[in-house]
Structure formats: structure tokens, C-alpha cells
Design a protein around this nucleic acid. Structure first.
Lengths: 258, 258
DNA sequence: CGATGCTTTGACGAACTTCAACGCGGGTGG
DNA sequence: CCACCCGCGTTGAAGTTCGTCAAAGCATCG
């Protein structure tokens, strides 16, 4: 009922164990034994919540740890000269960030909190040491990275092929699915990012995003009031989003809309 | 002198050992010991060369192995309904493909040879087993995946922010760097992919790609004759490509053009 | 209550796509 | 060996989508 969770529950100081964390099924420790989990937990750090606008890290910072969002949301972006930036992703609860920095040991992106946000940090060196004994940890990370690569390919299709309307529809639908997976409503949520960020991420001008929102609302597809979104027809939204590779649904791999 | 290597050297049947392979410094076995390498080599399979137009795998195929290009080139693409497709990447010698399939165990993309191409296959199950004993293999794969994620982010910047001119310049410059790294000429090479594929990959119409080539040639930036490219001013090409995150050059991480 | 930043709306223009036609080269078959 | 055909690439003109510019509305905050 409360889409913006962090504003309701002050989950700040408590050190919840991974197995009690609601992200349990989603972030790293999936499919590992009780004993393995305990050992992993020992190295996981919980940062105190970061406030809106604070940076988790900046482009160029040395890479120290992988972060997992527990609540709130994070924006990743590549700063370019003159304050110009390219938003490369938004990270919702249960999602990792910083995977692009492992290879170079330097963060290519900056990461900024869009609202009050709490994250888990997994110090990478310790993770590596532990992985020598528990290869399952490496395997899990590889799986998550593979998923990330796949999702970036999906976004490349969006940027390369889709119209403005399809882009925004695909974006909203994606948010819906990700919230749904987290146990939140798929049809009603707050967008923590600005129109500017959305446009940047989708390769569109702010004005175009705004116009599309208006059009969607006029069509009765959704209701939008500032950052509050209510989707009235999720199915139609998916159709508007155009073809997309989907991975859910067991073995069948579909590229069609339905 | 012969940029199109595969057309000159029939490296087909011989089973070169990894340590004798010219890709040694680039693909998986970087930084592993003699003994580790021998064990890895035992599970690597060399496929006989695939011909132009042949598929390595198709979208929806079960994922069995990671492939490394030894010579030639491969195009990855997501087929969409009605023969429409989105090209997601080109793979030159020394580069891996199929990393997006690990998580789902199903290939989201198809992979088609752009010319006669030979690849190494690393059966993933066996790779996993071996990795339990040699964590360095996992680490190396994670590094390569991280690099892939970073490169896809770079391409997202291209698709989201750059003009047609910048896109083609960035594309050609990227090819240059990748060939250079392989010991080929950075300033003269054959483009194995069609204008259509290039446009598709860059999010442009074929005609736009063609016009940009013409413009570049009129400007004296390069000479292009069908698929044969000679770049006369690599530096100017890099400038035309616009800002890009660059990872080479030690610790300093630069986002500027120079 | 004014200032500020974000969002929306409208008018205009530019960049790129689409449509159409032509040229070129490579492969095939007579 | 030549002619034909077909796919690919180029070029020109018209059309459309989206970006840019400008201005006004509206919440938030000091």
C-alpha cells in the first residue's frame, strides 16, 4: 500500500541478517547453504542510509565493493564534460550495482541516491578470498552479471529501435515488473527519478517524456500526478512497449509481444 | 599487409595449443599458470571454421559453451518478429561471445558468421567443474564480463547521446582500437559487416551510414572503397567520435576527448 | 511570500528516416 | 567468356519525429 517504502519504515540502524532480509531471494546469497550464508554475512557491511543526492561513489573512484540496494533507489551515470551526463541505469531494491568496475578496479560510473537509500556492501577482496573456498559465490555473481549483460542488450534494442512512445512504455513496464518481483504493486508506484533522468536514460528530451506522459494519460492508459503513477492497463502498456526479449516463463524464450 | 587474415591463412584444421595461439594475451587464459593452462586446454574445443552466413547458435538455443573468436568475425543479434533484428554486437578475434546466456541457460541472441570464422568453444559445464579447483578461471571470466558490461554502457552512451556523425566515428575508432590490440593495423582494415548491419548496430538508417561515409571521405578523413577502409587521421576520428569513457592508460580514468 | 527548480505546453526547425531510383560488382548459367 | 541478374551501396527529394527554444504553471523550501 505504501509504494515508497523507505519513507515509511525507518530501516536505518538495524542490522538485519541476510536470511531475514526481504531481498534474500534476489541478491547474491541465492542458493547457498546456511553455513555458506553465515560466512558471507560476516563480510557484508551495511552502510547507514545515504540521503537523496549523496553519492555512493564517483566516476574514477577505486573499486572496493559491490553494492546491493536494500531500500530506496540509485541512479548510475557517466559524467561527461560540462555537466553533461548519460544515465546508464536505475537500481531498485534487490539489485546490484558496480559490476562494471570489477575489471578496471575503477568505477566508470557515478552512483547517486535518488531518495534516502540503504545499501549492503560486499568488500570485493574479501568476497574473492571467500570465493576460493565457496565457488558457489562466484557462480552466483557470474549469473547476476550475465543477467545484467542481457538487460543491457535489451536496453540497446530500446535505444536503437524504438520510438519515443515505445521507449517510455517499455520503461514503465520494466519498472512495473521489477517492483512486482519485489512484492510491491506493479500498477501503482512512485518514480523517484526526475523527468530529466528518465529522458536521459531513454535517449529522449525532457519535453518529449513529458508529452508522452500526457498522451498516455489522455489515452486513459495511466494516471500520472508528478511522480505518482497508476497504471490502468498493464497489458496495453506492454503492447505499446513493442517487442522485447523476455526471459521469464520457464524454458520458452519468446520475442513476441504477447 | 593482409588485413583480412582468414582469407589468407587457412588456419582451419590445425589444433594450435592455447599458449601458441595469438589470442593468448586476450582471451580467457590470461594470467594463469602453465599447469592450469594445460588443464583448461583439455576442455577447450576447436570447431572447424564456420562459413559466412552460418550460425554459431540461434536465439532460443540451449546454452552449452562460451565461444572465443580465433579468426574472422561474428555478428550477434536479437531477431524480432518479421525478420526485423537488432544487432547487439560484433565479435573480432580474441573476443568472447555468449556471455549473456549463462544466467538463463538459453541464448537470447543469435550469432552469425560474417566471413569464414573459426572459434574455440569452452563447454560451460566442464569449465564450471574445473573452476571449483581453479578459482582463477572464475575470476578471469568475471573480469571479462565486467569489461563487457562496461563496453555495453559505452554503447548506451553512443545510442543515447551521439549524432549520426559521432556514432559512425566512434564505431570506426572502436574497430581501429580492437584491431590494433590484436596486432593488426589500426588505420587500414576490411569491414566484414554490411552497411545494413552497421546502421542497425548504431541505430541509424543504412542511407545515413552511407552518407556519413561519403562525408568522411570528402573531408579527407578516410578513404573508403566498399568494405576496405583506410583512415588518414586517427586522431581527428577520435575527436569526431566525441567524449567517451576510456579505460586504457593506467590508473587515470578519463572522460575527455584528448 | 518570493525564489528556485522541476514540469508542462506550444511553436519552430533540424536531423534523420523513408521512399524512390540508379549504379556497381560479383556470381551464375548459358 | 560474356550477359544477365540480384544484392548491396549510393544519391536525391520529401516527410516525420523529435529536439530546441521560449514561456508559463506549479510544488517545495527557505
Amino acid at each position: 500500500m505504501a509504494p515508497s517504502r523507505s519513507s515509511v519504515v525507518p530501516l536505518s540502524k538495524r542490522k538485519i541478517a541476510c536470511k531475514d532480509c526481504s531481498l534474500f531471494q534476489i541478491c547474491l546469497p541465492v542458493g547457498i547453504s546456511e553455513e555458506e550464508l553465515e560466512r558471507l554475512e560476516k563480510i557484508i557491511q551495511r552502510r547507514r542510509p545515504v540521503k537523496r543526492g549523496d553519492h555512493l561513489y564517483n566516476s574514477g573512484d577505486p573499486f572496493r565493493s559491490i553494492c546491493a540496494v536494500r531500500s530506496g533507489s540509485i541512479k548510475s551515470y557517466v559524467p561527461t564534460e560540462k555537466g553533461n551526463e548519460q544515465v546508464t541505469g536505475f537500481h531498485l531494491p534487490g539489485e546490484l550495482l558496480g559490476l562494471d568496475a570489477i575489471s578496471q578496479k575503477i568505477h566508470p560510473c557515478s552512483a547517486k541516491a535518488l531518495e534516502t537509500t540503504s545499501v549492503c556492501e560486499i568488500p570485493y577482496e574479501q568476497f574473492e578470498l571467500l570465493s576460493n573456498e565457496l565457488p558457489v559465490l562466484h557462480r552466483q555473481l557470474i549469473n547476476l552479471m550475465s543477467k545484467e549483460i542481457f538487460e543491457e542488450e535489451t536496453h540497446m534494442v530500446l535505444l536503437g529501435k524504438k520510438s519515443a512512445e515505445e521507449r517510455l512504455a517499455a520503461y514503465l513496464f520494466s519498472i512495473s515488473m521489477r517492483y512486482q518481483r519485489r512484492g510491491f504493486s506493479a500498477t501503482e508506484y512512485y518514480l523517484s527519478m526526475s523527468r530529466n533522468d528518465i529522458g536521459n536514460y531513454l535517449g529522449l528530451a525532457v519535453e518529449t517524456v513529458s508529452r508522452m506522459f500526457t498522451r498516455f494519460q489522455d489515452d486513459g492508459l495511466l494516471t500520472v500526478e508528478r511522480k505518482h503513477i497508476i497504471i490502468h492497463n498493464l497489458d496495453r502498456l506492454r503492447h505499446l512497449a513493442g517487442a522485447m526479449p523476455c526471459k521469464s516463463g520457464g524454458n520458452s524464450f519468446c520475442l513476441t509481444r504477447s
